[in-house]
């Protein structure tokens, strides 16, 4: 159930979590009705509790598709219930379906974790700048480096560029070597390729993606750090104004 606990929730994550929970409650209800017909049903709250205990497993965590997949191995919760029921006649027949339902729920969690990633990618495409810069009403430019100039955010320009901006590959080697290998003696003159931060913006509504948005010195590039990866976008026109940058 890791995916429900990590990070700021996206709207997709919230919806899928509720659907998963609803499905499990529905399954409890179905099993409950089935057992009622056979006249061996436990009390409703005990059925829910047995399911919850059944969820506990020994599992292996594997990071996959930008999320943590927990693969259940040993049904610890089921064993606990079995041990509990062993001293009570007829109890196991009552609890068994719910205990295993709890165990299988772990696979439902895996499916919903994967669904979360794939649906999120469809609704919030990771190759588009507008996914990362949704609301920039209060956006500000913050200087990060001595080579930064006194510039401001040009919201009108950003507004225009958001529609036509393109993603390009990061060629960091070049930037890094430009910085590090040249000008060793002249270290005070170094210029940072990305000396600005675009802050007080938020990623597109409901996406829940935290971002660190670096702006290139010519005002025409965005280097975006998110918890998953880094993206680089180039615009036609500068989104900065003032400071006499070309």
């Amino acid at each position: 159930m890791q995916f429900m606990l990590v990070g700021p929730a996206s709207i997709i994550e919230v919806i899928i979590s509720y659907i998963t929970l609803g499905l499990i409650i529905y399954l409890i209800y179905r099993y409950y009705q089935k057992q009622k017909n056979q006249d061996i049903h436990p009390k409703a709250w005990k059925a829910c509790l047995a399911t919850l205990v059944g969820v506990f497993t020994f599992s292996i965590n594997i990071p996959m598709f930008r999320t943590m997949i927990e693969i259940p191995i040993l049904p610890i919760g089921v064993w606990v219930l079995l041990w509990y029921a062993s001293s009570r006649k007829g109890a196991w027949a009552k609890y068994r379906p719910f205990a295993w339902l709890g165990f299988y729920a772990n696979f439902l969690f895996i499916v919903s974790a994967l669904m979360n990633v794939f649906v999120h990618d469809i609704i919030y495409p990771k190759g588009e700048l507008s996914t990362y810069i949704g609301d920039y009403e209060n956006g500000v430019i913050i200087q990060l480096h001595p080579s930064a100039k006194d510039v401001n955010l040009d919201k009108t320009s950003l507004d225009q560029q958001l529609g036509i901006v393109e993603e390009v590959p990061v060629n960091n080697m070049e930037w890094y070597h430009d910085m590090v290998t040249f000008d060793m003696e002249d270290s005070e003159e170094k210029e940072e390729q990305f000396p600005y931060l675009l802050s007080r913006t938020s990623s597109r509504w409901g996406s829940g993606i935290p971002t660190l948005i670096y702006v290139e010195k010519d005002g025409r590039g965005f280097l975006i750090d998110s918890p998953y990866d880094q993206r680089y976008f180039r615009t036609d026109e500068s989104i900065l104004k003032g400071g006499n940058i070309e």
């Binding site: 200087q143 990060l144 480096h145 990061v170 060629n171 960091n172 910085m179 990305f194 000396p195 280097l223």
Partner: peptide, 11 residues
């Protein structure tokens, strides 16, 4: 094959 660059921050 994924490139990542961390800009220098100095304030």
């Amino acid at each position: 094959n994924v490139h990542q660059y961390t800009p220098k921050i100095q304030l």
